[in-house]
Design a binder for these strands. Structure first.
Lengths: 160, 160
DNA sequence: GTCGCTGCAAAGTCTTTGCAGAGAG
DNA sequence: CTCTCTGCAAAGACTTTGCAGCGAC
């Protein structure tokens, strides 16, 4: 990989960096870099969705049918990645836990109860207020998440 | 119950109303008012905690040992109450789903990752922003929740 | 009386774990 | 070579369901 080459699109460069960081993280903890771990990271990166462990496993099987990655490895790797704050999880309703790459910019979630899709957004004003609140309470914030549940305009139309 | 008597404290009056509403809800759906359902509602009301189904079941067994309420009934009743928006659930991390009475005023959550406790708060400014955001996007908000994770001042001190 | 509700236990789901062989460093 | 990882299958944790008797209305 030539770092002088600027022809990569944004996403490719990000992934390269992500991979470097991931390898460093593994090394630091005396863990090994395996094909399975790489495929899991890559699949999470390629997907714009919020994935359940099962959905992620399914995608991996489609992508690398000959690798026969077990669901247990997916769970183990997700736990490792979450612990290291590389991915973050979101759980809501009966739909279980969903994972997404946490390396992205922080954002909140609009969850569509009709179609199950999730849209991301960021609102600076809310972010600021969150910091003021925790400062006032002398609370050391490590993370925060916000979810708004409801019906998107498309689903509202379908109902008519 | 004499409605002219004003000697009840705030909490008692609230519970009376909650019970009336619950009975009306049951009647409306051709469901029956049972001792188990009453005990579950009352225990949820009495507790200021956010309870897991198991913790709730445990409290009920202590409160009414002779009733022998089954865990299945607790799950069934919680599902009924959540569907009717009498209680709401909150799930986070590996700690599973916790329930609280939703009849209270809306609020967000400060979750203490060290001691596991949850503090409630409301911030008008954030509430307003949430409404503006959904209005802009033509998104029909049915509910929303916000969680801030971190360490409270007491736990920060313990670490020193 | 009728029909929904309950406890129990069995069945599902989802997730974790033990183990022996495979593979990274 | 060593020591971690992996797939598999079994075990666990949590939740739901079927059923026969019970109880609200």
């Amino acid at each position: 990989m030539n770092t002088v080459n600027t022809n990569f699109n944004h996403k490719t460069i990000e992934y390269e960096q992500l991979l470097i960081d991931f390898k460093a993280l593994l090394k630091k903890n005396n863990l090994k870099f395996t094909i399975q771990r790489e495929v899991i990271l890559e699949t999470l990166y390629d997907s714009d969705e919020h994935l359940t462990p099962e959905a992620l496993h399914h995608l991996i099987q489609e992508k690398q049918p000959d690798l026969k990655t077990g669901i247990a490895t997916v769970y183990r790797t997700l736990a490792l990645l979450e612990e290291s704050h590389v991915v973050s999880s979101l759980s809501f309703g009966a739909q279980g836990k969903k994972y997404e790459l946490g390396a992205k910019e922080h954002h909140d979630h609009l969850i569509r109860t009709e179609c199950g899709k999730i849209t991301e957004f960021v609102d600076e004003e809310i972010e600021k207020r969150q910091h003021s609140i925790t400062n006032e309470l002398n609370f050391k914030m490590s993370d925060h998440s916000m979810q708004i549940y409801g019906t998107c305009s498309e689903c509202q139309e379908k109902k008519i």
